[in-house]
Design a protein around this nucleic acid. Structure first.
Lengths: 350, 350
DNA sequence: CAAGGTCATGTTAGCGCTATCGTCAGCGCT
DNA sequence: AGCGCTGACGATAGCGCTAACATGACCTTG
């Protein structure tokens, strides 16, 4: 039985009943698909009468444009891919809010991915995000694997790196120097009379910003106490929680009893240490001083107030968004690298 | 690198130099595009020898599949649209982490939108998210405008509603009852001997969960103190910050001096009130007791510890993800409505 | 009043991929 | 030898949309 009977070619049909399409709306309105498309994208190029007809048809049909198809045809996705290390750390939430608040009014959507401070995951993540052909790329950090650099460069997508500083950004950069900030913090502590600091932070493989803070600490120690052996405690094994900060207070004090100020790489730990100190009757700053990094709201309200570094959490997101918007319009920003700086906040804890 | 030389027929050309395509890889590997596509999707259906050739070509060409095209052709997007009220509130961050941690390994990406507790924005947001033809929809809350209900229903996308409870979910539901939780809280306070509670929360138009908590409060007051006029303070005008919690402590105490326990609708305010009380020498719980809602980490470590309601923050995200995965596979979960419950945490503040 | 311009709309040809079906070699079995 | 089957791969026809060009009605203008 040969299959020669295909004379009356039944056309190949795709499977499911799909949603309402442009074509459906066009037929309903009695115009061409192109006109419907124009009503959606460039309403001014359609006569008021036709436009109204089409808009009614769109509403009646409950039409929702298929953005994948639009993306494919127009080569623009209106998506900004967003890479952050962690969702839980509230600092990034604020940055995301800033980012989204500027991008959303322009019709951009955020495609979110988090790396959990893992370089390998970052690579996979970026590959899969690139698959959506985003119009822009928001990155946390400036240190990326060669593969990541290659992919991003090859893709030609506008990129903004944030939350750090580098002299060789991929494209644009909106951040501050973690190293300088920590250097300034330690200098401030030195000036305040502290003599035996100990750095406490998560020196995770993938957490490059902590590493930079350590670099700043080491440089400051070398400058202010030449020849001294810098005290450093790697808290990689500790989760990023207040409670862990409390445990770190004890552990580090046991390890370095001579230490007079704990220089935490994040306010989370520092605040946790303050809470634990209060609980256990350890006097801060008299018995041991504490400094943080990030200036959370709690750091300002807790007693003693936490001496820390204020960072431009929200501003980073907003500025990065503006930078991306300019780049996505094809402009070459005059100053593609913006240093938003930081501020030392001296409070009672040190 | 021209693909085809249309010397005579200058064919219509699309604008830009686009990225590497399947076809490019196919030519490089000396196979058809279909085979490359198979290597990507169903490697088992390709002979090992061919597969290896193609994989090499993919790597050499730096090919990144265009997921918009894939989406269009296959009618599956591997995107889960995620609607949350706010990014800043850290509770949702934890839920997002849970959601993402289950979905990412299955190849799904999160398309993120936040409504800022605004019903109108929710509507626009959902429309634009639907445009990407997501495979699943994650919603915070169970109370939506008719337009939202219509759109989601018409789209046929699997939906999971969370962070609340309803008897008429759109599709699946993973949450707990805010009303019951607050009812239980107030009952517990009643049992502890408190007699003149005052509810303090943001009764924003778009913040339906706060409203439900108020409902639970009102019902509890009616049950435990029949005939009594319930004390309620609407903190809509206050930002969701610790500092605002401190101000609320003063404002509400002035307004209701007889009140013996402040029943906050969120731990943010409650913790802020505890910090302010300590600062101003107001004794908690002797002068005024305080309860919260959410059980943040701080609530456990602050002194006095905050009496509050623990919620399944992370679990909600994970369970919701599992629910969606099942629905996206076309299964009809046996129990499409999961109540994850809550727990009253009694601590020193009340 | 014909040549040229403008405006609103339609027609055509893809964008890069996958679903579907077709083909063809190789196999075991009667 | 002939049959049906399987496995590996290719050819074709879209998915729903937009860019680029085409058309045709209606104005100007000299």
């Amino acid at each position: 039985m040969s299959r020669q009977d295909g004379a009356m070619t039944s056309p190949r049909r795709r499977s499911a009943t799909r949603s309402v399409t442009l074509q459906d709306v066009a037929e309903l309105a009695g115009v061409s698909a192109q006109t419907v498309s124009r009503v959606l994208r460039v309403p001014d190029e359609v006569s008021p009468h036709t436009r109204e007809k089409v808009e009614t048809a769109i509403r009646d049909a409950g039409y929702v444009p298929n953005l994948s198809a639009r993306n494919l045809a127009s080569n623009r996705s209106k998506i900004v891919a967003t890479v952050i290390p962690s969702l839980s750390a509230s600092i990034f939430s604020e940055t995301l809010t800033g980012l989204s608040s500027v991008l959303a009014p322009e019709g951009y959507q955020l495609l979110l991915g988090y790396t959990d401070y893992d370089d390998k995951r970052e690579e996979e993540l970026i590959r899969s995000l690139l698959g959506r052909r985003p119009d822009g790329f928001f990155m946390t950090g400036t240190l990326h694997s060669p593969a990541v650099v290659r992919m991003l460069t090859a893709s030609g997508v506008p990129v903004v790196e944030t939350w750090d500083w580098t002299d060789t950004p991929l494209d644009t950069l909106v951040g501050f120097s973690n190293e300088e900030a920590m250097y300034a913090m330690v200098s401030s502590l030195h000036e305040a009379g502290y003599r035996r600091p100990c750095f406490v932070g998560r020196l995770h493989k993938g957490d490059h910003r902590s590493r930079r803070r350590l670099d700043g600490y080491l440089r400051a120690v070398a400058d202010h106490w030449p020849g001294a052996e810098p005290r450093v405690f790697d808290a990689s094994e500790y989760p990023l929680t207040l409670e862990a900060g409390g445990r770190l207070l004890e552990v580090v004090r046991r390890l370095h009893p001579e230490c007079d100020v704990l220089v935490f790489a994040t306010d989370v730990f520092a605040n946790g240490a303050l809470l634990a100190a209060a609980e256990r009757g350890i006097a801060v700053p008299d018995e041991i001083a504490v400094s943080g990094f990030g200036d959370f709201e709690l750091s300002r309200l807790i007693r003693p107030g936490l001496t820390t570094v204020a960072l431009p959490n929200t501003t980073i997101g907003q500025e990065a968004a503006r930078m991306l918007l300019r780049r996505m319009r094809g402009e070459k920003p005059a100053r593609p690298h913006v240093d938003l700086g930081f501020e030392i906040r001296r409070r009672a804890s040190a």
